[in-house]
Design a binder for these strands. Sequence first.
DNA 1: AATGAATGAGCTTTCATTCAT
DNA 2: GATGAATGAAAGCTCATTCAT
Lengths: 216, 216, 216, 216
Amino acid sequence: MTDSPDAPRLRDRQPKELRREQLIQATIEVIGRKGYSGTTIADVASAAKLSRGIVNFHFDSKDKLFHATLQSMTEEYNALWRRALAKAGRSPAARLRALVDADFDPALCTPRKISAWFAFMAEARPSAIYRKISGTRDDQLLDAIRDQCTALMAGSPHGYDPDPTARAIYALLEGLWLRMMLEAPRFKRDHAHLVALTTLGLMFPNHFTPEGRIRS
Amino acid sequence: MTDSPDAPRLRDRQPKELRREQLIQATIEVIGRKGYSGTTIADVASAAKLSRGIVNFHFDSKDKLFHATLQSMTEEYNALWRRALAKAGRSPAARLRALVDADFDPALCTPRKISAWFAFMAEARPSAIYRKISGTRDDQLLDAIRDQCTALMAGSPHGYDPDPTARAIYALLEGLWLRMMLEAPRFKRDHAHLVALTTLGLMFPNHFTPEGRIRS
Amino acid sequence: MTDSPDAPRLRDRQPKELRREQLIQATIEVIGRKGYSGTTIADVASAAKLSRGIVNFHFDSKDKLFHATLQSMTEEYNALWRRALAKAGRSPAARLRALVDADFDPALCTPRKISAWFAFMAEARPSAIYRKISGTRDDQLLDAIRDQCTALMAGSPHGYDPDPTARAIYALLEGLWLRMMLEAPRFKRDHAHLVALTTLGLMFPNHFTPEGRIRS
Amino acid sequence: MTDSPDAPRLRDRQPKELRREQLIQATIEVIGRKGYSGTTIADVASAAKLSRGIVNFHFDSKDKLFHATLQSMTEEYNALWRRALAKAGRSPAARLRALVDADFDPALCTPRKISAWFAFMAEARPSAIYRKISGTRDDQLLDAIRDQCTALMAGSPHGYDPDPTARAIYALLEGLWLRMMLEAPRFKRDHAHLVALTTLGLMFPNHFTPEGRIRS
DNA sequence: AATGAATGAGCTTTCATTCAT
DNA sequence: GATGAATGAAAGCTCATTCAT
């Protein structure tokens, strides 16, 4: 009666895609808050301010909802670092720095989302959901990091190998995410970012300053 | 085909501590295999080849079993790195190397245990089980790493800071554990260990060779 | 042999209140039949011809179901004697007789309901369910009885006290309920009613005949 | 080491009968405290300061323990009122008064025992434990009361019937026990006793004073 | 005679899923 | 499209009972 006619009420009918997206965002939020095993379909529906039956209606099963949620998170993450790489130009140092910075983008690097990521990872039995959906992305990001390391270490003294170096950077980034989660709110995004940049400075003293700025 | 008479039957009476330990080991095994939310009391009892009621008999609740399991894992981990540090002598490089090596000790660094660790970490809501039990250990290990970094970087050029460096090494080690879990069995312990040692070589070129050996 | 199409199937949707009432009635029936400790949620659901999950769906827990059941019984009982009192007019003898008769009303005084009452009473630990829900009602009924006794004994010879007299009538009524339960089906409602009326005749010979009829 | 050699330690071996008695007393105590459904074998063993297995050892099953407990309570009660009757002499008034007084004997009329009585009564499904064990006793006590009523009412005016009168006294006594339980500790033994005696005074004004003393 | 670890049936409870409306 | 009452499988927990010691 009182709603203005063009303000779409939440529980009104919505195109399928909108509802799915709304439910996926609610899922991320709830998993981030309650953990994987603590998340029920009722929680998700309630967080989306919709009825209990809605999830099975749009996703058939809880499993498929979680699948779609991880898929969505993966795509968002992928898009971010690819865009960052594209914008970074051709200098390997700038590209590497861009990849590192992307990991601490305020849009992605939120407590809820980090929590949700680890929830999915920790449920990753061999052959399970995480590997299937995000495994490829992981490989591609590692490749991208390795490409920059290879370029940066071209003239390095004998014995320094870009391959484990890239592995190290990649592991470092994930380890920092883990720490942000476990030590929240003590260990914050800026602090973690600084640690990553410091590492660039230590690993590539010719290309980065101690604080991680690119040496021109 | 019957049990040899002197093989102690599993279902025989055992001192409480033995049963508790047996159940904790079964819990680690099952969590490692099926994940946190996938682990039921029946699974644990069955893995220990005992009856369903046994867990509640010895631990009162699933929660307390999980609690005791994480406690046990924490104590094992703690004992390992402290022992490694004690054996390493007084040279900061040797001590740092010992801490890094400890993380890849074959007794700890098994697929099941790594999986179990992340299962507990991912369930770590703010104020939950992991923080409570393992938080202090984490802090102490980080302190130990930082002590060595501080010593090693005493004469470093201006701008290099041991604090984020220690954070980086710590995050790197955890990130490598995560990768061993997610990429098992492709990404193996030796490979991860090599990545960690390479990082030492890159970070402290005066104290470690590119492969992580200590420069005398 | 199939259900006639217009017979509403039990399992069809019903308003919440209807289902709750249906489950409460089933609970009284089962407690009356199997006792407090012998009553399981499955029994109640089965008596209501509904599924096992229904009780927790509508009442959250067995405890709350039992709570609601006793509440319902208390309200029914309360309504009955208050209505009887209201209809009885102003004569103390008629009012007292009405209160006594109410206790043997065929709607309340059934084997099942009596059994259920004592089941709840016997579970009454200090501070437990019965006291909390029905304690006040008991007091009010006792007060109502005492009011009539006081009026009837106004001119009694010295030494006769309306207070213990009221207590006696109240205890008598409950004791008769107990006997109906314990000696069922030998000791029936009509017999118990007669005993109560006889007592009125003995206690107030000026106001009631030996059979309990009101002397005009 | 410190126990004096002749002080029998509780957990030492004891003749069967002693242990059984010890367990029965513990059972009364626990049922009185926790109710019928709340009483576990472990509770009983613990109240008797014995091991968990002891009950099944001496009574085979919980059912048989409860059986023996009610039997013991019944025998104690029986012995009490029969003894009281024997001591009362031949005067019907004295005998009736003795029966009433017996019900408020401090040895029997304790909160725990009353609670235990009602616990057993309330579990009395038709054909169940209470009827089987205590039914006969109830009948005999009722008979004893009726005998006195018949004698006392021999010369009563037409219409007064000793049979319902006896029923009333019996129900009154049980009802007062119930009230002592439900209103504990507000409604005490002495108060209830007074109510019963007052009733005698009202019912038999020629034989008892208003306070229930025997008119000589 | 007594212990208490071990068992497993049976219970309450949770919750993904279904489906009449 | 959306709702939410209803279902029932699966889980955790309790506890009477067993039995090696």
